[in-house]
């Protein structure tokens, strides 16, 4: 598993549940260390053990925790850089949704060994979309639910999201757009790099 993903989990746990929770989790998962390096590759089983230990420690289902992780990735000030990268996807929420087809390629363009599962957006109607998450990263669909919800807020769109579960090969997320310009949304300044 790419260190960036492990590092994201670490950052989320520390910011949300505190350093002591993270230390308990790494101990329970038997990592033998407490800090993931963003630019190293780790065994997949380490990530699985960390998520299992976290779920046990918090006594919450993993899917819920992963949704919160998705929200954290977009909305927490620690992750402003990632929010900006996602906002490059489009000027409106709908444009952003369409850009998800390229997300895996975009991620690889930035970090060549970061492989994210393929996403495919299907337009059911101008107000309803289905996002198909292809396999490759267990729990990715749950994270995406949190990401999509937080990005909707970021654009000021009002959207209802539901994780429909597995349908054949893919996991399906339904996005119902209630109002594309519901609120002001957060500002995105193209030239504000590195802030």
């Amino acid at each position: 598993m790419h260190g960036l993903i492990n590092r994201a989990i670490q950052s989320f746990v520390c910011a949300t549940y505190g350093q002591s929770c993270w230390l308990r989790v790494t101990e329970a998962a038997g990592l033998g260390f407490t800090e993931f390096e963003a630019m190293l590759i780790y065994e997949d089983s380490m990530t699985t053990r960390v998520l299992d230990a976290l779920s046990a420690d918090l006594n919450r289902p993993q899917s819920e925790i992963l949704e919160d992780l998705g929200t954290y990735l977009v909305s927490h000030p620690n992750m402003e850089g990632l929010r900006r990268l996602l906002r490059f996807g489009g000027v409106t929420y709908v444009e952003f949704l369409h850009s998800l087809d390229d997300l895996s390629d975009r991620a690889r363009l930035a970090v060549s060994d970061l492989r994210l599962p393929i996403l495919e957006l299907c337009e059911v109607s101008p107000a309803e979309y289905q996002l198909h998450c292809f396999p490759g990263l267990p729990g990715y669909a749950s994270v995406m639910v949190g990401v999509l919800r937080a990005v909707a807020d970021d654009y000021g769109a009002l959207a209802m999201l539901s994780h429909e579960g597995q349908q054949g090969d893919v996991e399906v997320i339904t996005i119902v757009l209630v109002e594309s310009a519901f609120a002001e949304g957060r500002h995105f300044d193209l030239g504000a790099r590195g802030t």
């Binding site: 990632l82 990268l85 490059f88 363009l109 930035a110 970090v111 790099r193």
Partner: peptide, 9 residues
């Protein structure tokens, strides 16, 4: 612009 930010990060 995306690439510059992504690569810088």
């Amino acid at each position: 612009l995306y690439l510059v930010e992504a690569k810088s990060a």
